[in-house]
């Protein structure tokens, strides 16, 4: 299986582009430039989150918290290492990527914790940012049930992450 998905996706993209007469090389370079810019733009946020998390981890505070939560989490089939990421994901996208890297370096990207964390990071969006931005644009003052409904969707994604990774 290794790498086939990526190869198939790339092949599909290039064939589709050639078929629709897209200047494929120029388009790729444009997209790659935007991608590099995005990667660079999340660096400061990672720089903010990773040291804070590293200091907490080094002190053993996160281990203590995880040990406290462990019984409830195992009932939900969620690995405890993935939980800090799940909590941070609605607040900060770059922060969640930093947490994901922490899980990868602690457990490995192909461990169960690594996979659950990957799914939880990919299946959620930065809820706080989206709601704040959209409410601001709409001119409405009360968001009614948007926040509880979005939180339910977030909880559903986290629980589903534990379920889809055997």
């Amino acid at each position: 299986m290794g790498g086939r998905v990526v190869a198939a996706m790339a092949l599909l993209a290039v064939l589709l582009g050639v078929w629709r007469r897209v200047p494929v090389y120029d388009a790729f370079v444009r997209g790659a430039r935007a991608g590099l810019r995005t990667a660079a733009s999340i660096a400061p946020a990672l720089l903010a989150v990773l040291p804070a998390v590293a200091a907490l981890t080094a002190s053993g505070a996160t281990d203590a918290l995880c040990a406290l939560l462990a019984p409830a989490l195992s009932a939900l089939r969620l690995p405890e290492q993935a939980v800090p990421l799940m909590l941070l994901r609605p607040l900060s996208g770059a922060g969640a990527l930093g947490m994901l890297e922490q899980v990868f370096s602690a457990c490995g990207p192909d461990s169960r914790a690594g996979r659950v964390a990957s799914v939880a990071a990919g299946a959620n969006e930065t809820l706080l940012y989206v709601l704040a931005l959209y409410m601001g644009a709409s001119g409405a003052r009360r968001s009614r049930y948007a926040v509880p409904a979005a939180l339910l969707a977030w909880a559903a994604a986290c629980l589903a992450a534990g379920f889809v990774c055997p």
Partner: peptide, 19 residues
């Protein structure tokens, strides 16, 4: 991670411009 991310962005740009 920038290299991999830019690769996917480039491919997505082709897909987007293909309609």
């Amino acid at each position: 991670m920038a290299g991999g991310f830019a690769l996917f962005s480039g491919l997505m740009q082709i897909v987007e411009e293909a309609g």
